[in-house]
Nucleic acid binder design. Structure first.
Lengths: 214, 214
DNA sequence: GTCTATACCGTGATAGAC
DNA sequence: GTCTATCACGGTATAGAC
């Protein structure tokens, strides 16, 4: 937290703190202290506190979107003529997030926790999440619609809601599952989380959206 | 917000505000104003701000736990000899929450949003959620273990994690699904949410935890 | 352009007087 | 059981140094 530009250090520190304590739980002074810069520098670069928050949130969103888009494209290629099925679509939506962990980049882990905070916040949730991710989510819904031709649209969206909730709780890494399972599961084990989430979610989609398909 | 005792008015107002803005997003002065009491009265009754927060969170937890426990008991009765299957267990876990909406009690809706906030917060999450709900969750895990005799324990807990995330995102009523679905789904329509969540989650459990059962 | 020091003024939580 | 007073801390604007 010394080598990067001051502007980046502010973003990095803010990311950590916002992820941990939310928007209101963090002060600009804490961020400045963590980034080793003057209090006023955040305002200089980003304007109001909320603008800094948005800047942190929007910074990494495009990277997630392209990684997911690329994974979906590759899955389409691999599927070829017969078209995509549910499982690889879900896989393409989730697996790119695993890389965030594998690279050992703490910044990414914090960023995912920040998504969890925003996605579950009635106050910030709708507006920011939609702005950052809805366009890409629509592409995945389209793919799912094609894979589940008898699905009603409302069913698809409700199923996506289930997926989104399960995913972002994992992002939050609250440690609750560690305690509940007496150490059997660790909430920071993204690999295990996705290994269980993908078949879980795929089965859910098929059950709810594939009924008239039997 | 005038008839109840001042102590209750503080709890009710705090519940609304904490649900909307989280712990740090709310001030004691706002709570006092909303409850029409003096600023210091909250401290008198509850001690520190965090103690008030805990009091709000712990107030309704036992009611949820008994409603769920009772629903599980009834499902067991109904199943009789052959024992419970997955679906009615999930149903018993989720349907009691629907009553919160049907009674039109805004307090309950706010309380559920508060659960969403806590469940997805790395900072408050593990400790408070576990204290309030883990004992009962273990009873449901036990029931699921019996219904899915070939399941590994870690699989059960990961699946519960998916359930928990999907459920609490619904609690949060962020309005995102409204926007994403262009009005087709409404995030405050708990009935529809559970109608889709129950088969979704049940299928997920069977898929992940029933594999060796085929 | 990038950054620091400082000052402002409103609001925060809380202790102690009433 | 209630209200007041206090004081630290909040975000932000500004003036000017590098």
């Amino acid at each position: 937290m010394k080598s990067a530009s001051k502007r980046d250090r502010i973003l990095d520190t803010a990311e950590i703190l916002f992820a941990e304590r939310g928007f209101d739980g963090v002060t600009l002074r804490q961020i400045a202290e963590g980034a080793n810069v003057d209090v006023a520098l955040a305002s200089y670069h980003f304007g109001k506190k909320l603008d800094l928050f948005r800047a942190v949130f929007m910074r990494r969103a495009p990277e997630i979107n392209s990684a997911r888009r690329e994974a979906l494209e590759q899955a389409k290629q691999a599927a070829g003529e017969q078209g995509l099925t549910v499982e690889p679509i879900i896989e393409a939506f989730l697996r790119p997030l695993e890389l965030a962990q594998e690279t050992g980049d703490k910044g990414w882990e914090n960023y995912l926790a920040l998504i969890a905070y925003i996605n579950n916040s009635p106050y910030w949730g709708q507006q920011m999440m939609s702005e950052a991710f809805d366009e890409l989510v629509e592409e995945f819904i389209d793919a799912l619609r094609a894979a589940l031709p008898n699905a009603q649209d409302s069913d698809l969206y409700w199923c996506y809601n289930n997926l989104s909730g399960a995913l972002t709780l994992t992002f939050a890494r609250t440690g609750r599952i560690d305690h509940l399972s007496k150490g059997l599961c660790r909430s920071d084990d993204f690999r295990a989380a996705y290994d269980h989430m993908i078949p879980f979610v795929a089965a859910g989609f098929r059950e709810v959206c594939g009924k008239h398909n039997d």
